[in-house]
């Protein structure tokens, strides 16, 4: 089992290494370097030369990649172009803000998705299933910026229950922040819950149709005991990986949601840095978001391995 975990870990590191190459080469081959795209029309003469000097763009690309990668491993992303600040200082509060948003959405979303998924599977094709599944299709397919806009229009503007635009002063307690983040959290959790509930539903339905459950029914195991002891452990295990992929996929949606609510997280930093053509920050964001994706998947692999007794004894399979 340790070998398996180690193998997954190494694969994750290789993926991150390729990501760093892709972001570096991508920025390199797209027209314009960091200096010309940032300075735009003022990109000539002394200003350009100074900028090139400061970023070290005069050394060959492979040397720049090596020194950049070396610094990144040590946790140093260099300087941003626009703010003249260290990228780490820019990133710190943004990561914290986004974490608050994402973890709130996950804490609400996962249990809710489990409950809804199980309900829809057990009452398959009956009223509860039809209603919940229809709502799920709507909240899953409608883009985040539409559900977020509608939430603002209905809850903040028409009903005036909550503020529509998030204003986050630097030092606030959690309870002061709470009314500000309710709407963005709902917007993110809605789409995530719908996706996961659908997966849980079909996973439970699959297990319910299997031979050992039929056997349990024939043996007369009480219904709820069967559901909790026999169905759920087997149904939820394969769902873990899919849930992880869904959460990772929603990173893109978080970006859009943060823009709609003007929430100062990583997502808005993506837009800001791209609008400002601040390529060093874009590169840093690429690596950070990719590491989040890789670690979520790694954690999901770990969970699956730890919860699945069959995999504990296997050494090499898959």
């Amino acid at each position: 089992m340790f070998f398996l975990i180690f193998k997954r870990f190494v694969l994750g590191l290789i993926t991150l290494f390729i990501v760093s190459l892709i972001t570096f080469i991508g920025v390199e081959i797209l027209p314009g370097d960091a200096c010309t795209s940032y300075l735009e029309r003022e990109a000539f003469g002394e200003a350009l030369a100074a900028c090139i000097k400061r970023l070290g763009l005069d050394v060959p690309a492979h040397e720049r990649y090596l020194s950049w990668a070396f610094n990144v491993i040590q946790g140093d992303f260099g300087y941003s172009l626009s703010g003249q600040m260290q990228i780490n200082e820019v990133l710190g509060p943004r990561i914290k803000n986004s974490l608050v948003l994402a973890s709130a959405a996950i804490i609400i979303g996962i249990p809710l998705a489990l409950i809804l998924g199980i309900i829809t599977a057990l009452w398959r094709d009956k009223m509860p299933d039809i209603i919940i599944s229809t709502v799920a299709i709507f909240s899953m397919t409608i883009p985040e910026f539409i559900s977020a806009t509608l939430l603002i229009l209905i809850v903040a503007i028409w009903l005036e229950w909550l503020p529509g635009i998030v204003i986050v002063p630097t030092d606030v307690t959690f309870f002061e922040l709470l009314p500000n983040i309710i709407l963005p959290v709902i917007a993110i959790a809605m789409i995530m819950t719908a996706h996961m509930a659908r997966m849980v539903r079909s996973s439970v339905i699959q297990v319910m149709a299997s031979d050992y459950i039929q056997m349990a029914i024939l043996k007369g195991v009480p219904y709820w005991k069967m559901v909790f002891k026999h169905v759920l452990p087997n149904a939820l295990l394969p769902a873990i990986n899919v849930v992880a992929l869904t959460i990772a996929w929603l990173l893109g949606g978080v970006v859009v949601t943060e823009v709609v609510f003007n929430y100062p997280g990583l997502g808005r930093l993506v837009i800001e840095s791209i609008s400002n053509r601040d390529l060093p920050v874009v590169q840093a964001l690429g690596i950070i978001l990719a590491s989040i994706y890789v670690s979520i998947n790694f954690i999901a692999d770990l969970l699956t391995l730890m919860l699945n007794p069959r995999l504990k004894t296997l050494q090499t399979r898959k």
Partner: peptide
């Protein structure tokens, strides 16, 4: 497949925005 995995782990929105803003 490793390269595809790496591309999958970069959020599409970051890559798309970068391409569109530069091209």
């Amino acid at each position: 497949m490793r390269i595809v995995d790496a591309f999958l782990s970069i959020p599409w929105i970051l890559a798309m925005l970068l391409i569109v803003s530069l091209l």
